[in-house]
Design a protein around this nucleic acid. Structure first.
Length: 1066
RNA sequence: GCCGGAGUGGCGGAAUGGCAGACGCGACGGAUUCAAAAUCCGUUCUGGGUGAAACCAGGUGUGGGUUCAAGUCCCUCCUCCGGCACCA
């Protein structure tokens, strides 16, 4: 028992104690619930008021863990609750819902250990979460609660999956359309399929033509066989079966995340992990790359989050280029396609690298060429494939690889360049193949240096281009002695200091030649020239250029990068493109790299060997999980392995006898243990008879959906949570989602995953006309982490809080440390760390509420600091908020009698303060700056509690007390409601009108202005508000102290900032 | 390495380029009390100055710059937190 709660008998009976707070909070929560105070109606409902504007305040719904809420959860919830309550008082219809993201791994793991069905533990956890959440007095409309594990919820998650399955992305119209539409267009001949299996819009004749534009063999839809049609359509669906590699642990019978694999073994148990390709459902989110990128400009999100999404999408402009294979046509095809952002460096491509997973490698292993070291290749590829991506990135320095024995032709130079396999090239990006330009890409440089491949400069920065120009133009007399060094240094210095273009090099060289050697007594120009010269002389020395001939030899062989020992990746001008004396169909020598890019790309396009291309880092979204506790994917397969959609929804997750994973070398989803469920018939599984005859035996999909499935659309279901006919009623969606969710608060850890996936689904649904808005979340805000104080030994290890005790005075005076470790006496530093079970510094909100009440908890968490910042939980500080509420309470209620203490007439000073406070609180709520709003309310209470005021006297009038209660209401709804009712209201404060303010009362008649002399405050003057500048200036200069500080110095300038400040400059 | 964010009293923090430290905690002093807790009142950046004030000087991670005026804007560096990382 804490002190302020003990012996309530000695406290006045109506003091706002923890017990008092808890009593009234629980009482009001019951009242609100039974009165339906937080219920909100939908358009079309009888008591819906369509004249009010809407506000949708959304929290990221929690995963209901068995441990219950911790103090980090409510932070965002309190914030949205304050805004929701405020908006309600301002006349908005407010949608403020809560639910549970309830599928997930912890419950499944618990089931594996104990055999208890995840549904049971999850329901218990949800009940506990709900109880805890309700105790905070959040104004959620609990009738809209949803949980992703409810059948009536996941039925619609499955429906959205099927919607994507039945859709494709039309690149010409830049939107998703039903697959049926595609079939129709194909049948009508509007679209045809070319020899490469690519879709071509016949009428438009644009895009999707192969590189080169050679005659395209087109196939009409009715020329295709049934299977060909089916394969083609399947290849276009937004939900498709793709193959991706997973970390399969046979012993654990499960797929592991990259960070759960260490050195090819499982983190848990150290069992071997295999990298296995697996057929998985994928979403074609990559089709939406550009739109997901562009629409980031439309939303009011933190800059950092938008940047993260941009980088995740990773747009880069460049070209794709086909390199012909040399020699006999290979099984892998006639050429290798690469993507590059640097087509300007094509002349410097001296080798190629393909990823170990590249099709060329498989083809080559099946049919090795004469020059292929099959053994080495096979060994390398096998090793590389079994290394996880994380591992491959971990040893990022030393490049490895083996030659394939194949050669390709560089289309610009005609050189035959070797093709290597190396794992620094990733199959998942671009085409899984690169052209190696070692002089201008550090990774390629490292690789070339390691394996002795040629390195040829093709881009020079301006300074080096100037050196080359100088060497090319050097006259015999320039070569004499050391003269060339000074001349060249001067020339390069002039070129760089003027940012001169190559066209201007000639005249500049003449200027240099015209200069005399600097003699004594010259102008500052020579001195400056001397500095620049020595800079460039140093640069020349650093390059190891001792004679002009050395430079010329380097330039001739294109060996500057090699000599530097590193690639030059910066901007510059094309050189050696082509090299002197060689031929090429294109010449970009001397062009700035940016122009060379365009020219090379244009030339490649014309030649049919390449084209401009935008590439994205974003990859398709793998949607299959080999888990039990997730939404079943509504698909069945026939005996030929063809897939069909299950239209009878929901596909209900079957029960299992036990949840132990299947030990197997081949990945087996846990659901495949439900064999009687898996084996079904078309009719039983819910396949329309038009698609398959009812008796056809089918096998159900045993993969389940990932956690991000249910969370990608829950905000839509809140709009219309129990609709049995649609995932959301169009009118409800159009009303609540107009312009997107108005405020969405949640952790920054979802910056890319959840927020990108939800945007993608939303865009698809929007394209198909199922939702009205293009973006789901208009305003997004991330609350900061709530951390905790932790105690650190000198060696930086942390000590659990229950092993910490205050330091004895002698330790403090000797070391300055305030804490020591119990037992050892080791002095400890107080630091800030994440709350964690091991440090025993996790705070349970239930305890805090028992000790102070929910209102104090709400207030404290908002008072700690800016919402977006991470901040440490300090139990000591809570009492400040608690005392504030006590004082606020005492302002209106006599602690002994419980009677109202009100003043008969309004104090004018307090009236002004109250108007100001009203403005301050409303602007701060809009800015989500709750800490300063609360500080302002504290100041008001301090001002309204004059020292020495007799108890029970009353300072505020009834009307003022009411307005103050209204300001408190969003923050501390229970206390505010109690005051409101005691002040004579029967309707809830939740729907009372926010108080108005009188702008006239915001300004004082006179203002005190500091007067500075030389920027230091030397006096103060009091002038009428809005006084003209010259009057203010006159008053300032008349001030006695100001005159003292000016003394007899002449006044240079007087700056008057109206209403703020005067500064006298002397 | 790259991209964000942050660095202000003993602590959490406040401050549209305009009086640095609002507000709260803690600490200290006082009232109340037999005593304590709770509650209430006062003081509290540092140094100088004074009986006490007034007042003076310095002060927002480091070093520089812009400005009449910088915690705030620009550049350099340091530290901490978060994210990404062979993306061609």
């Amino acid at each position: 028992m804490t002190s302020h709660e003990s012996k309530p008998a000695s406290a006045p009976p109506h003091r706002y104690t923890a017990r008092y707070a808890n009593e009234l909070e629980v009482r009001w929560q019951g009242e609100w619930e039974s009165r339906g105070t937080s219920r909100v109606r939908n358009p079309g409902d009888p008591d819906f008021d369509p004249t009010r504007p809407k506000f949708y305040a959304l929290d990221m719904f929690p995963y209901p863990s068995g441990a219950g809420l911790h103090v980090g959860h409510p932070e965002g919830y309190i914030a949205t609750d304050i805004v929701s309550r405020f908006k309600r008082m301002r006349g908005y219809n407010v949608l403020h819902p809560m639910g549970y993201d309830a599928f997930g791994l912890p419950a499944e793991q618990y089931a594996i250990q104990t055999g208890v069905h995840p549904a049971i533990t999850t329901r218990q956890a949800i009940d506990n979460f709900r109880r805890q959440l309700k105790r905070f007095g959040f104004s959620y409309d609990w009738s809209r609660e949803v949980s992703t594990i409810d059948r009536e919820y996941y039925r619609w998650t499955q429906w959205i999956f099927l919607t994507l399955y039945e859709s494709w992305y039309n690149p010409w119209r830049r939107r998703a359309e039903p697959v049926a539409e595609l079939v129709k267009r194909l049948a009508r001949g509007e679209y045809v399929i070319n020899l490469f299996g690519e879709l071509v819009a016949d009428a438009a004749g644009i895009a999707a033509t192969p590189i080169g534009g050679e005659p395209v063999g087109r196939r009409r839809w009715h020329d295709l066989s049934e299977d060909e049609r089916r394969d083609f359509i399947d290849s276009k669906r937004l939900a498709y079966l793709g193959e991706s590699v997973v970390n399969w642990c046979p012993k654990l019978g499960t797929v592991l995340a990259n960070d759960e694999v260490i050195d090819g073994r499982s983190e848990r148990g150290g069992h071997p992990v295999l990298r296995k390709p697996l057929k998985q459902w994928m979403f074609r989110i990559t089709e939406y790359s550009q739109r997901l990128l562009e629409d980031l400009d439309k939303v009011d999100w933190p800059q950092s989050t938008r940047t993260m999404q941009r980088e995740w999408i990773g747009r880069s402009e460049g070209a794709e280029i086909d390199f012909d294979l040399v020699g006999a046509p290979h099984a892998a095809g006639p050429s290798i396609r690469v993507f590059t952002t640097r087509p300007d460096t094509l002349f410097g491509a001296t080798f190629m690298v393909v990823a170990p997973e590249h099709p060329l490698v498989d083809a080559l292993l099946a049919d090795p060429g004469p020059k292929t070291d099959e053994q080495a290749l096979r060994a390398y590829v096998a090793a590389a494939r079994n290394r996880g991506e994380v591992e491959r990135m971990a040893d990022s320095q030393a490049k490895t690889g083996v030659p394939t024995g194949l050669l390709a032709a560089n289309p610009a130079t005609g050189w035959r360049i070797p093709i290597w396999v190396a794992d620094y090239v990733l199959m998942g990006y671009g085409h899984g193949a690169i052209m190696g330009v070692p002089a201008h890409d550090q990774r390629d440089f490292d690789f070339a240096a390691r394996f002795g491949l040629p390195i040829i400069d093709v881009i020079y920065p301006r300074a080096r281009l100037a050196m080359k120009y100088f060497a090319d133009q050097a006259r015999p007399e320039d070569r004499v002695g050391e003269r060339w060094r000074d001349q060249m240094a001067d020339f390069v210095g002039l070129v760089t200091s003027l940012n001169a273009e190559p066209g201007a090099f000639g005249p500049l060289l003449e200027t240099i030649r015209g200069r005399r050697a600097p003699a004594g007594g010259e102008s500052g120009g020579a001195e400056r020239r001397g500095t620049i010269r020595s800079t460039w002389l140093d640069a020349i020395d650093d390059m190891g250029i001792d004679r002009l001939e050395t430079l010329e030899a380097r330039l001739r062989e294109g060996g500057l990068a090699r000599a530097d020992g590193s690639a030059y990746e910066g901007p510059g001008y094309a050189v050696n493109s082509p090299r002197p004396g060689t031929n090429s169909g294109v010449d970009v020598n001397g062009l700035p790299a940016s122009q060379a890019k365009v020219q090379v790309t244009d030339w490649l396009t014309l030649k049919g060997a390449g084209r401009a291309r935008v590439n994205y880092r974003l990859r398709d979204w793998t949607f299959s999980r080999q888990r039990y506790w997730g939404e079943p994917i509504p698909i069945v397969f026939d005996m030929q392995g063809r897939h069909y959609p299950v239209t009878k929804l929901p596909v209900v997750l079957p029960e299992l006898d036990d949840y132990h994973p299947i030990e197997s070398d081949d990945p087996q989803p846990l659901l495949s243990k439900a064999w009687s469920w898996v084996s079904s018939t078309a009719a039983e599984a819910g396949i329309p008879p038009g698609l398959l005859p009812p008796e056809t035996p089918v096998r159900r999909e045993t993969n389940t959906m990932p956690g991000s499935a249910g969370s990608s659309w829950y905000f839509l279901r809140y709009c219309d949570p129990s609709n049995p006919r649609r995932f959301v009623d169009p009118a409800a969606e159009a009303y609540w989602m107009a312009g997107g969710v108005d405020l969405y608060i949640g952790g920054a850890e979802h910056a890319v995953g959840h927020l990108l996936y939800a945007r993608f689904w939303h865009k698809v649904l929007s394209d198909l006309g199922h939702v009205s808005s293009p973006e789901p979340f208009r305003k997004l805000f991330h609350q900061g982490l709530i951390t905790s104080f932790a105690y650190q030994r000198p060696d930086k290890t942390l000590v659990p809080v229950d092993h910490v005790e205050p330091a004895p005075p002698e330790v403090t005076s000797a070391t300055g440390k305030l804490y020591v470790e119990r037992g050892t006496g080791t002095p400890l530093n107080a630091v800030v760390a994440k709350m964690s079970k091991s440090l025993k510094n996790v705070v349970n909100p239930d305890d805090v509420i028992a000790e102070y009440g929910a209102d104090t908890f709400r207030l404290y968490e908002m008072y700690m600091g800016p919402l977006e910042m991470s901040k440490p939980w300090n139990p000591r500080d809570i009492s400040g908020c608690f005392r504030f509420l006590q004082r606020a309470w005492r302002l209106a209620v006599d602690e002994d009698s419980g009677a109202l203490t009100l003043a008969p007439t309004a104090d004018e000073r307090l009236e002004r303060l109250l108007h100001r406070l009203t403005v301050k609180v409303e602007t701060d709520i809009e800015r989500l700056a709750f800490n300063t709003a609360i500080a302002a309310m504290m100041e008001f209470v301090n001002a309204a509690t004059p020292p020495g005021a007799a108890a029970g006297a009353g300072v505020l009038t009834r009307e003022q007390a009411q307005r103050f209660a209204l300001l408190l209401a969003p923050f501390v709804p229970h206390l505010a409601e109690e005051l409101w009712q005691r002040l004579g209201h029967t309707a809830s404060i939740a729907h009372a009108d926010w108080p108005d303010h009188d702008p006239a009362l915001l300004r004082d008649d006179t203002v005190e202005i500091p007067v500075q002399v030389q920027g230091k405050v030397r006096g103060r003057i009091t002038v009428p508000a809005g006084a003209p500048s010259d009057a203010v200036q006159a008053a300032a200069l008349a001030d006695e102290r100001v005159r003292q500080f000016i003394a007899d110095r002449p006044i240079k300038k007087v700056i008057v900032v109206p209403g703020k400040m005067v500064n006298v400059v002397v």
